[in-house]
Amino acid sequence: MKKILVLVILLLSGVVLYSCESSFLGNEESSNKKVSNTDFEIGEPFNLPFGTAISNTDKSITIEFKGVSDSRCPADVTCVWEGNGKVTLGINTDGVEYETQLNTHPEEQNSVVINGVSFSLTELNPYPESAEKAISKKEYVAVLIAEKE
Rank of each mutant, 00 (worst) to 15 (best):
M1A: 11
M1Y: 10
I4H: 09
V6C: 08
L7W: 12
V8T: 12
L12M: 12
L12S: 05
S13M: 15
L17S: 06
L17K: 04
L17Q: 10
L17F: 09
Y18G: 10
C20F: 09
C20N: 15
S22G: 15
F24L: 07
L25T: 14
G26V: 13
N27Q: 04
E28D: 09
E29I: 15
S31R: 13
N32Q: 12
K33G: 04
K33E: 14
K34H: 10
S36M: 10
S36V: 08
N37G: 12
N37L: 12
E41L: 06
G43R: 06
G43F: 10
E44H: 00
F46K: 02
F46G: 04
F46L: 00
N47I: 05
L48Q: 06
P49S: 06
P49C: 05
G51I: 05
I54N: 00
D58F: 07
S60W: 01
S60R: 03
I63R: 05
I63M: 04
E64N: 03
E64G: 02
F65K: 01
F65V: 11
F65C: 01
K66E: 13
G67L: 07
G67A: 15
G67Y: 09
V68M: 07
S69C: 07
D70M: 07
S71Q: 13
S71D: 12
C73S: 09
P74R: 06
A75L: 15
D76E: 04
D76N: 13
W81S: 12
W81V: 11
W81A: 08
E82H: 07
G83I: 10
G83D: 08
G83N: 02
N84L: 06
N84W: 07
K86C: 05
V87K: 02
V87Q: 00
V87M: 00
T88C: 02
T88I: 05
T88F: 01
L89S: 01
L89G: 00
G90D: 11
G90S: 15
G90H: 08
I91N: 00
N92R: 03
D94K: 15
G95D: 01
G95V: 10
E97I: 14
E97C: 02
Y98K: 08
T100L: 09
Q101V: 08
N103E: 09
T104S: 10
H105Q: 14
E108P: 02
Q109W: 08
Q109E: 15
S111V: 11
V112T: 11
V112H: 03
V112C: 03
V113W: 03
I114A: 01
N115A: 13
N115C: 13
G116L: 15
S120K: 15
L121E: 05
T122V: 14
T122Y: 05
T122D: 10
N125V: 14
N125H: 03
P126E: 11
P126K: 11
P126N: 04
P126C: 06
E129F: 14
A131Q: 05
E132Y: 11
E132L: 13
K133P: 03
A134I: 12
A134R: 10
I135K: 01
S136T: 02
E139C: 03
V141S: 01
L144P: 00
L144E: 02
I145N: 03
I145H: 03
A146I: 08
E147V: 14
E149Q: 14
